[in-house]
Design a binder for these strands. Structure first.
Lengths: 376, 376
DNA sequence: ACGGTGCATGAATCAAGTG
DNA sequence: TCACTTGATTCATGCACCG
């Protein structure tokens, strides 16, 4: 797990087992060039924020704030940052599968430039997600609002990509059965999760919290997917991907970060298959034609179906169509017609009388499906 | 109030009384050209979002979503939108005072382009603010996260502007004595606040809620300041500015919107000077001890206080503490104790009988505070 | 005057599979 | 690529109406 690959050994190698679940050491764009076209399912990118810090910042007690002033976060100008951003985004886009999606996280210092560039490069923005921090750093000078959030952009490769992965039902189930919103609340990375060096100092200045990555990965990937992180740092993406039964590829320049990430990922225990099973909606269940209900005898030709309030009714015909008012058609078409609508889900609209109460025919479809499941 | 000015009458007139508190009818950039250099203290801009909607969207009940499909939101391309954005931002920058600040609101469709352009034009970003909606529209198809927020960018005219207005202490005091964060929670504009035409339909598709504007204006302007809104719409900025003792200038193209805004603003009653002074004071709201109420005679030793439903009661002692069931303590400690809780806000928990009804003692604190305000 | 039910609606880049 | 079919999909709030 987490082999470290020297960049020179890679030349757009197609065999995934040469680079999957490894950290490629080298410059981000050069390393991306070594990966094959359309080879990763998702990308999580935490690029340098281009913080434009003037002098040092002191707390009210005069202690010095340990700001992000590393070499890799220094850009001479917006133009230089744009050139850098365009290069790594383009390289990512080539490597991403046509139905893959990309996440980029940033703050107000850089996220507007990144988002505009993504639009310029034909990524299609799906959402912007706000990470609200429960415990953000205060604003010490009292000259601005406390900067209490960061922004993530989630985008598909292009506007036409319709079948990207989004585990809507699992997210909703995990969120008290209401759909997941675009504002997420998580603590910053601290305590035992925060990697510290032998000197007790944090290894990386902007280590992201694992729960944040976990939601990203659970929302937009499937088990077994390959997730690329072109700014791997201390490997939060890799650690969470491994724990959640996904694969990763990391790109990182600094040996200290690579060392920390390798050890970290090696210690991760993946979850079992049962725990990883994602709740899915009706969409993913096998298709059942209404005629199957007729053929199996669950409903009978001549039987009357009605809507939930018995305002309209129709008769089942032997070919699996319905008839009412001299018209006939599928359960969906006729359901739409009797309501004067363009569309209708006949499975939930039409009901049958079980002797006591009206029940949707969708329940009979479930009976068929459970019978099919037993054949597995 | 809210005179409507034909654009032709204005030629960078310096005398502010010719355009202050009026709505200029005309194209945004052309109208901005008519205003003098460095003439407004703050700008709030709600530009078109450039939504690129495909076909129609239906709810699960097949009803049609009333989308924003107005002509003013149609742009041929990102490039066309950028040209438009650059033009109005540049014009705003000339009109803004050197120490003025600008707010721009948008969604993920446009805010990244706007933010990047602002940086390119040398605005200096101070914060990005997230407006979290309590009641956003759901995502009906379950293909994305519910889009539950919009983003505002707050920026000064340039990096060197250090003495912009930011009422840090007033914001902190209004926020339970912790500094105001970058994520704000407000409902969308609906109910009685939402302007409706004679046909019962909304006058403007994107009317912003007044509390949002109130926080913007209270945070970044002083009483008497001039606030420009280059996309005035139905005049939320003007209405809130007038109520809060500020001046406004609006620019709007559509006569229907101008008519609605004029009538709306005319009906606004400005707050009194005392109320505004309290709200904008540099110090936090003065702390009032319960004993001050006793000393001032608003409550009397021996008087009985109870909770809102008369389930528990306590007696006021001369030293400003309460006693009940053989225990005594502050209004907060005793309130917590009688409820079996760890903490309690005694000001809102305890009520007194004014002869007709039970009223919270917090109202008596307000009486003390307004008396203190009159001493200013 | 209430409480309960039903309905309308808000800045929305909102489906997937088959032939 | 287009046309057509199948059938999946919503949260909070305000207001009208009714008993």
């Amino acid at each position: 797990m987490a082999a470290v690959l020297p960049l020179a050994d890679l030349k757009r190698q197609v065999a995934p087992d040469t680079w999957i679940n490894s950290i490629i050491k080298g410059d981000c764009v050069a390393a991306l060039e070594a990966l094959p076209d359309h080879s990763v399912d998702a990308i999580f990118a935490d690029p340098p924020y281009n913080l434009q810090l003037g002098g040092n910042l002191h707390r009210p007690d005069q202690s010095l704030v340990d700001a992000v002033d590393d070499d890799w976060d220094q850009f001479a100008s917006f133009e230089a940052y744009d050139v850098f951003t365009r290069a790594w985004l383009l390289a990512c886009r080539r490597v991403l599968k046509p139905n893959g999606t990309i996440w980029v996280i940033g703050s107000y210092h850089n996220i507007f430039r990144v988002g505009a560039m993504m639009q310029d490069l034909n990524f299609w923005l799906l959402n912007d997600i706000v990470w609200r921090k429960t415990n953000p750093m205060p604003n010490f000078k009292g000259r601005r609002f406390q900067n209490a959030h960061e922004t993530m952009i989630w985008a598909s490769r292009d506007a036409k990509a319709k079948s990207y992965t989004f585990n809507y039902d699992a997210l909703k189930a995990s969120n008290d059965d209401v759909q997941m919103r675009s504002d997420w609340l998580f603590p910053i990375c601290s305590g035992g999760e925060r990697l510290k060096g032998e000197d007790g100092k944090k290894v990386h200045p902007t280590q992201k919290p694992e729960p944040l990555l976990a939601r990203v990965i659970m929302a937009s990937t499937k088990p077994g997917d390959v997730i690329l992180d072109p700014f791997f740092g201390t490997g939060t993406t890799g650690a969470v991907a491994k724990r959640l039964g996904r694969n990763f590829v990391g790109i990182e320049r600094e040996q200290d970060y690579i060392d920390a990430a390798s050890a970290r990922i090696a210690a991760v225990e993946p979850l079992g298959k049962a725990e990883l099973t994602v709740m899915t909606g009706k969409k993913q269940e096998p298709r059942v034609a209404f005629n199957t209900l007729v053929e199996s005898g669950l409903v009978k030709p001549g039987q009357v179906l009605s809507d939930a309030k018995r305002r309209v009714s129709a008769i089942i015909r032997a070919d699996g169509t319905l008839a009412a008012n001299g018209e006939a058609g599928s359960i969906h078409r006729l359901g739409a017609k009797v309501q004067g609508l363009d569309a209708c889900n006949g499975w939930t609209f039409w009901h049958y009388d079980d002797g006591k109460t009206l029940r949707p025919i969708d329940e009979l479809r479930s009976v068929i499906r459970s019978g099919m499941a037993k054949l597995d």
